[in-house]
Simulated scan of single mutants.
Amino acid sequence: MAGFQRYFNARNTLIAAVVITLFGGYYISQSPSPSSFTMSQTSSEVPGLSLSLSQISKSPPTLRVTLKNDSPDTPYTLLKWGTPLDDAALNTGVFKITDADSGAEVEQVTLQIRRKMPPGQDQLAGVNPGEEGSIEVVFDRPWMPETKPAKYKVKAEGLLKGIWDRPKSEVTDDDTNEYTESPLAGRIFITNEVELVVE
């Protein structure tokens, strides 16, 4: 009888262990893994849309900022504020600038900009599928170090404050007045890092 009881207890323990293992495995498979959770938090770029930097002049030191849309069928319109396309980008700290040799960050003088609401059409940048547009940014602010020649590393990253998945002509004043409510607002942008040579 004691042997039967031991067999019965061992059998129940084994069954319980198998059941717990099966339920545990199912729970883990249905739960987001840490890596997938992290990915969903950081994978916030707009599909097909990119902002890139390239140097086009050493004197005065000038970068070309290119907005490109590789999407096959989706047009995009974004609010320039807080991006490298912003006319005030060099006054608002959009660019991160470091000395290429020492790695020391260049201290920038940033200004508090008063924005006119709603943003006008000139504050929007639109790109159709397969197209790109660009502007030039001259790094000529008084806070730039006077040492020449010099080399700096420059990149930009931040949040797209307002972005719509439709042509610029279809973005209205009502839309721009509520730009934080735009469908893709808050997505991250990160440019490439380029070496800015100053002569």
Results as ranks from 00 to 15, higher is better:
71 S>R: 08
118 P>V: 11
27 Y>C: 07
185 A>V: 05
170 E>F: 07
176 T>E: 01
164 W>G: 13
26 Y>L: 15
151 K>S: 13
172 T>S: 15
74 T>R: 12
128 N>Q: 12
125 A>N: 02
175 D>C: 04
173 D>Q: 09
89 A>I: 11
160 L>S: 02
11 R>H: 08
130 G>R: 01
88 A>E: 15
78 L>P: 03
21 T>S: 15
74 T>G: 06
49 L>S: 04
150 A>Y: 07
163 I>D: 06
28 I>C: 01
33 S>W: 00
19 V>F: 00
72 P>H: 10
27 Y>V: 12
30 Q>D: 06
101 D>N: 12
6 R>P: 03
152 Y>H: 00
113 I>K: 04
20 I>A: 15
125 A>K: 09
97 I>N: 03
5 Q>Y: 13
184 L>N: 10
13 T>Y: 14
3 G>D: 15
132 E>H: 09
40 S>M: 12
111 L>Y: 14
157 E>M: 10
53 L>K: 02
138 V>P: 02
133 G>N: 13
194 V>Q: 05
56 I>Q: 13
37 F>D: 10
196 L>F: 05
182 S>V: 04
134 S>I: 00
114 R>L: 15
191 T>F: 01
166 R>K: 15
13 T>R: 15
77 T>L: 06
108 Q>S: 10
56 I>C: 03
21 T>E: 03
189 F>A: 05
183 P>K: 05
102 S>V: 06
58 K>S: 14
137 V>T: 09
84 P>T: 03
107 E>C: 03
15 I>T: 14
107 E>W: 02
55 Q>A: 00
2 A>G: 14
179 Y>A: 01
173 D>K: 13
109 V>T: 15
111 L>S: 15
71 S>P: 04
168 K>T: 08
91 N>A: 14
86 D>H: 10
164 W>A: 05
140 D>L: 09
150 A>L: 11
93 G>A: 06
4 F>M: 09
8 F>Y: 12
1 M>L: 14
146 E>A: 13
162 G>Q: 01
64 R>C: 01
66 T>Q: 08
15 I>N: 03
177 N>H: 10
88 A>D: 14
62 T>Y: 04
130 G>F: 08
196 L>I: 01
182 S>N: 09
39 M>G: 02
155 K>L: 07
23 F>K: 11
108 Q>M: 13
91 N>I: 05
138 V>T: 14
29 S>N: 12
113 I>Y: 07
51 L>Y: 06
69 N>F: 08
72 P>C: 06
79 L>Y: 10
98 T>N: 12
101 D>W: 05
147 T>H: 11
120 G>A: 07
93 G>N: 13
55 Q>K: 01
172 T>Q: 01
71 S>Q: 07
153 K>L: 11
97 I>H: 08
42 T>G: 02
151 K>L: 00
164 W>V: 08
57 S>M: 04
194 V>F: 00
44 S>I: 07
74 T>E: 04
124 L>Y: 04
59 S>L: 13
24 G>W: 14
26 Y>V: 14
51 L>Q: 03
42 T>D: 05
160 L>I: 11
133 G>P: 00
158 G>V: 05
